[in-house]
Design a binder for these strands. Structure first.
Lengths: 226, 226
DNA sequence: AATTAAAAGATAGTATTGCTATTAAAGTAA
DNA sequence: TTACTTTAATAGCAATACTATCTTTTAATT
């Protein structure tokens, strides 16, 4: 039983809207699980179809190729984070407090009560951490950017940058800090698990508290000291 | 005429050492150019061989697959940066000054006088910016890490983290700041060109000064304010 | 200068990937 | 019930990611 919020995404990301049909929802559901399981490079539509007892050709009716499917998942994720931030900061006046909540949401989004039953937010979180950046490090980035394929991420960046500027109007790099918070939230979660010498934080059993504390420390240090 | 410095890399990265033969050097040279031209996803050993008038099978005698070739290029790049940092900070006593030089070197490494004729450092810089992170966002990261495939990057991170701790022994995240400097140097160079709404810096005609200024600002703010 | 070993080139072959096309079956709406 | 749409089933094709073998070229040793 889904609460029925619908994440709104650029409709050029897909050929047929996967949120509209049960096959589409199945594609989303199993692609998240399969990418998590075997990694994006080894992931193919044929394997996905096999896993969900459908056919390759059927998957191709929804997504042009696996890159656009990843872009869809990434956009979905950031839109979901954006939605959570809106809810969690709704009645907060203080910009400092808002920024704290934003950082909290960024790192701990995957824990929030799942609102959509065909998306396992916790697994999606792992997928975004491990594969997310591949969505925009591509030769077609400029063309895709003009088509609005990254607008969810950019809008979230705007939103957070605005709060940063509210906290400290003189800080000269609000957008950069915002995007850096997104990147660090994910990269240091990855480093902690796979390349611990590249970070100072620990992550054990899906506990990302230390990542959050680090982001808070960085942000405070950058914005509140003069 | 090459000065003859030899970058030392983990010998499990390759099947035959490409630095030792002219075919090997050609593989390095043209792979940098071709990845820059068509992107890592479209890059194949067959296309590379065609470009350099050799054969696919010959390339496979040097590298197991294109992923390991990328890892080789990435390791080469960070080892090159590490070497430049050593030279540039050789007679510097002050840790603050050293850190400034490190940041400078990080962002502007590609400009340094090319010491190795088969590597176009400026093009390699672009390749690392656009494709570098794909070297460690892979399903085999843990296995490859135990084999020491990322040791060049990790050692550079150690080196910079030590200087950071020298500047401020109480700063709790020296490694994270170090790796974040590497990541930001590259990601914001990329954002400035392709996704400008994700940053506040401008890059035009290979002029990365603003990226450098931002990294200096972040670093000072994090380490020098109390 | 002749001999030999190693490297590179040439060619072939295979399983998988990344698609497109066609036709048949199933479900759904008029 | 007919007609329309969606999905399943199957086939096919060019490119990718290799491996294997064999011949020629190059370089090193005697």
């Amino acid at each position: 039983m889904s609460i029925g919020i619908k994440i709104s995404l650029n409709n050029k990301l897909y050929l047929r809207d996967p949120q509209e049909t049960s096959l589409g929802q199945n594609i989303i559901k199993h692609s998240i699980l399969l990418i998590d399981e075997i990694g994006f490079e080894a992931f193919t539509f044929k394997k996905l179809a096999a896993k969900m007892n459908s056919t390759e050709a059927s998957v191709y009716r929804y997504f042009e190729n696996k890159h656009l499917l990843l872009l869809y998942l990434v956009s979905w994720y950031w839109e979901w984070v954006s939605y959570l931030i809106d809810i969690n900061t709704m009645n907060i006046k203080s910009a400092e407090e808002k920024l704290k909540i934003i950082i909290n949401t960024l790192v701990l989004a995957y824990k929030e009560n799942p609102a959509i039953d065909y998306v396992n937010e916790s697994v999606l979180h792992r997928v975004i951490i491990a594969e997310g950046t591949k969505a925009y490090y591509t030769k077609e980035v400029d063309k895709e950017n003009t088509e609005g394929f990254f607008s969810n991420y950019k809008m979230l960046c705007d939103k957070v940058a605005n709060v940063i500027s509210e906290v400290n109007p003189d800080f000269p790099y609000p957008r950069a800090l915002a995007s850096n918070l997104f990147e660090m939230a994910n990269s240091h979660s990855y480093f902690a698990i796979h390349l611990p010498r590249l970070t100072d934080v620990n992550v054990k059993d899906e506990n990302y508290e230390e990542v959050k504390d680090m982001l808070l420390h960085f942000t405070n240090s950058l914005l509140l000291n003069e």
